[in-house]
C-alpha cells in the first residue's frame, strides 16, 4: 500500500498545476484516473504476492492454504532448508512435530515378536517406547538397546537419539526380557 501511495502523490501535484484552466472538469477526470491507477496498482500487488506464495510452496511442498503471506512462506522455506542437514533443537522438534521411524528387533529367540516398525513423534521421551513394548509384550520389565549397544535413559528424547544414533532414516531399537548387553 505504501508503494501505491508514493505513485499517487506526483499526480496530485499535476492536478494542482492544471487548476488554472477548467478546474472542476479536470478535477473529476484526474480523480477518476487516480482511482483507476490505484486499483491497477492494487491488482498488481495482489498478483505478485500470490505468485510468490505459490512459487515457494512448490519448492518446499507446503500447502498454500496454510501460508497466505509472502513472509510466512519465506520463513517456512528457510526453516526447512536449515532443518535437514543440522541437528534439530528441542523447541524445533516440538514445533515441527517431526516423526521418527523406529525399527524393532528381538534379542534371542525366546521373546515374542512384535511389529518391526513404529513411527513416533521426535519430542517424545524414550520411556514412551519402553511403555509401548512393555504393553505389547505384557512383561513387567523390558530391556531396550540402541544399535545393540547401550540402553538410553527414559528421559532422553527420541529425536535427539535419532540425530546421534540413527542409521539411515530410522533408529534401531532391540528388545529383550532380560539383560542382554550388561
Amino acid at each position: 500500500m505504501d508503494h501505491s501511495n508514493a505513485n499517487v502523490k506526483p499526480e496530485k501535484q499535476d492536478l494542482a498545476i492544471s487548476d488554472n484552466s477548467s478546474l472542476n472538469e479536470k478535477k473529476k477526470i484526474n480523480i477518476s484516473e487516480q482511482l483507476q491507477f490505484i486499483s491497477q496498482q492494487l491488482d498488481q500487488l495482489t498478483h505478485t504476492s500470490t505468485n510468490n506464495t505459490s512459487d515457494s510452496s512448490n519448492i518446499t511442498g507446503i500447502d498454500t492454504t496454510t501460508n497466505n503471506t509472502n513472509n510466512n512462506s519465506k520463513e517456512t522455506s528457510d526453516f526447512n532448508s536449515k532443518r535437514i542437514p543440522i541437528n534439530i533443537s528441542q523447541d524445533n522438534i516440538k514445533n515441527n512435530k517431526e516423526k521418527i521411524n523406529i525399527r524393532f528387533s528381538p534379542i534371542g529367540g525366546s521373546i515374542k515378536q512384535i511389529n518391526t516398525k513404529m513411527i513416533i513423534a521426535s519430542y517424545q521421551p524414550f520411556s514412551t517406547i519402553i511403555q509401548y513394548i512393555k504393553k505389547r509384550l505384557n512383561l513387567p520389565h523390558v530391556y531396550l538397546y540402541i544399535n545393540n549397544s547401550f540402553a538410553p535413559s527414559g528421559q532422553q528424547l527420541v529425536g535427539e537419539l535419532y540425530e546421534q544414533f540413527g542409521i539411515g532414516d530410522e533408529l534401531c531399537v532391540s528388545y529383550c526380557g532380560g539383560v542382554a548387553f550388561g
Binding site: I146, F150, A151, P152, S153, Q164
Partner: peptide, 13 residues
C-alpha cells in the same frame, strides 16, 4: 547399570 550404559553411550558418540 545406568552408569555403565552412560559410558557406553558416550563411547558410541
Amino acid at each position: 547399570q545406568q552408569f555403565m550404559h552412560q559410558w557406553k553411550q558416550a563411547c558410541y558418540i
